[in-house]
């Protein structure tokens, strides 16, 4: 990665493509390292990152928060927003250069209040849904948010 070059991470959730700024992603790990015991509410386990035990969630193609993994998700993208670190299980993850992406407003006919998706991104002949780690964090269920606070305080 060249210094100062703006990049993005493409996270594939089955058929849904999600794109977030590279700076929102702390690390991309293999999901084999997950701790599955006593998962967080609406989550599926924990991952150790930077000496913290971070909750891991499994969003469906519809960006619903699943309690179990129902399709192959071998990758865990560890995101950070507002000082909170959390993982998302993905089918695939890769980095994209900003030069290879064109961003477009979400068409008015598709705008639903409260969605974490705020733009669309065309790349290499595909289209992804653009979001931010902060928007994804804000979309996690209230119970999960409470758990994050509790875990953070305990650590």
């Amino acid at each position: 990665m060249r210094s100062g070059e703006s990049e993005f991470a493409l996270l594939r959730l089955d058929r849904t493509n999600l794109i977030v700024p590279r700076n929102d992603v702390r690390i991309i790990e293999l999901a084999i390292d997950l701790e599955r015991d006593q998962p967080p509410p609406h989550g599926i386990g924990w991952i150790l990152f930077d000496r913290q035990r971070c909750p891991v969630y499994c969003p469906s193609m519809e960006l619903e928060w699943m309690d179990e993994v129902t399709s192959p998700r071998p990758i865990c993208a560890v995101l950070n927003a507002k000082g909170v670190t959390f993982g998302l299980l993905c089918s695939e993850a890769k980095l994209l250069r900003s030069d290879d992406i064109s961003f477009h407003d979400l068409p008015p006919a598709m705008v639903v209040p409260g969605s974490p998706i705020h733009r669309l991104a065309a790349y290499e002949g595909g289209v992804a849904c653009a979001s931010l780690a902060a928007r994804i964090l804000g979309d996690l269920p209230a119970a999960a948010a409470q758990e994050r606070r509790t875990t953070s305080e305990a650590l």
């Binding site: 058929r15 193609m61 519809e62 068409p107 598709m110 409260g114 002949g125 849904c129």
Partner: peptide, 27 residues
């Protein structure tokens, strides 16, 4: 057409396609 799902959108308009450097909503 190669169409792409966009979650959290209305069921009748939940997909898009790329056409002539645009991203077009699909009804």
């Amino acid at each position: 057409p190669e169409i792409f799902d966009v979650p959290r959108t209305p069921q009748h308009c939940s997909r898009v396609l790329a056409w002539q450097n645009r991203v077009v909503p699909v009804w």
